[in-house]
Simulated scan of single mutants.
Amino acid sequence: MLNPQHLAVFATIIRAGSISKAAIQLGCGKSLLSRQLAKLEEDLGARLIQRSTRKLTLTEIGEQVLHEAQRIDVALANIEQMAGQHQQEVKGRLRVTCPMPAVARLVPVMTEFCQRYPQIDFALQVEDRLVDLIAGQIDVAIRVAHLDDSNLIARKLVDSQRILCASPAYLAKAGKPVVAEDLAQHACLLYINAGRANDEWTLLQDGEPKKIRVTSHFQSNNGIALVTAACSGAGILLIDKLIVSKHLKSGELVAVLDNYQLPSGSPVYAVYPARDWLALKTATFVAFLQERLFTGV
C-alpha cells in the first residue's frame, strides 16, 4: 500500500521547488526526503520527477499524481490540526452511562460541566445492567460496585457509606428506634437483588455485629423508588448515603440509629475504555467528577 506521508512529501517537494528547500520547510534531512520520494516511485512503478541540476520537472504521471497528492497533503494537515484541537479544547459529545440511583447526583454535575465547557454535549444512558463500553461507544461509566479485572481503566471516586434513614413524618407516627433491636418493630424498605430481598440487616456497635431480621411492606429493585417511598413516609431505608445526600440536606429524610456503624457500601468508580490517547474531554470530565460528584457524601 502507498504511504500517504510519502505522497504529502512529494507534494511539498514540488511546492518548494527542490528537495533541499522542502527539507528546510519540513525540518528534516535532504537524504530522508530523497529516499521517501524514491520509495514512492518504486511503489507506483513510475517515475514522477525528471531530475536535473537546476530544476525538477514533473512527468505526465507525476502531474496526475501531484493533483491527488496535494489533496492528501491538505487532508493530513487538517487531521493534524483537528487532533491538536481535540487535545487542547474540551469539546464534543460525551457518552456517559450510570445506574438509576446515581442519576440524581450525576445530572446536576453534568449540567455544571456544560456550563463551564459550553462546547460539550452529553448523551446519558441510564442502565442498572453493565454496559459494554467499547461496543456502546461509551466514554465514561459510573459504576457502584466492586469491579472485576478487565481491560477498562477504573478511577475510584469514593468509598460510599451506608445510612439508615426515614422521613420525619414516619418517625412522628411510628416512633424513632433507639437500639438496633427496635428495627424489628418498624416497617422497613427493602432492595431486591436477583429476585431476593435482603431482610437481614447488620449493624455494628463497638465493632460487634448485630444482625436484625426486619419486615417490609415495600420492596423494589430500584433505588429511586425506595427513596421516594421513604420520603413519602413508608418506612426506614438502608441505602448508600450518596443516593440520599440531597434528601438529608433538605430534611426530607433524617438519619436514624446513627450511634451505630454500618458495613461500607460499594465503592463508586468512573470507568472508561483503555486507550493509548485519552481524549481531553474525557480526562477533564473524570477529574471534574472527582472534584464535584461525591464531595460531602
Rank of each mutant, 00 (worst) to 15 (best):
L2M: 13
L2R: 12
G17P: 09
S18L: 10
I19E: 09
A22H: 08
A23D: 03
I24L: 07
Q25D: 10
G27S: 09
C28E: 11
G29R: 05
L32C: 04
L33E: 09
R35E: 06
Q36E: 12
K39C: 04
L40C: 07
E42T: 15
A46K: 08
A46Q: 12
A46G: 00
R51K: 14
T57H: 14
T57S: 14
T59L: 10
V65E: 02
Q70A: 01
I72R: 09
V74S: 06
N78E: 11
M82Y: 10
K91D: 01
T97F: 06
A102L: 13
V103M: 05
L106K: 03
V107R: 02
V109G: 00
E112L: 10
P118F: 05
Q119W: 07
Q119F: 10
I120T: 08
D121F: 05
F122G: 01
D128T: 09
A135H: 08
G136N: 14
I138S: 00
V144E: 12
L147D: 02
D148H: 12
D149K: 05
K156M: 13
K156Q: 15
L157E: 04
L157Y: 12
D159K: 11
S160I: 11
R162F: 03
R162V: 08
I163Q: 03
C165I: 03
A172S: 15
K173Y: 13
A174W: 01
K176F: 11
P177D: 08
L183G: 01
A184L: 07
A184H: 05
A184F: 07
H186Q: 14
A194K: 15
W201E: 01
L204M: 15
D206E: 15
E208C: 12
K210G: 07
T215V: 13
S216Y: 11
I224C: 01
A234M: 11
L237F: 06
I239S: 04
V244N: 01
K249A: 15
S250H: 05
G251Y: 12
L253I: 07
V254M: 14
L257V: 05
D258Q: 09
D258C: 00
Q261S: 11
P263R: 05
P263V: 05
V268S: 06
Y269K: 01
Y272T: 00
A274E: 05
A274R: 02
D276H: 03
W277Q: 06
W277H: 02
L278Q: 06
A279K: 00
V286I: 14
L293P: 03
F294Q: 05
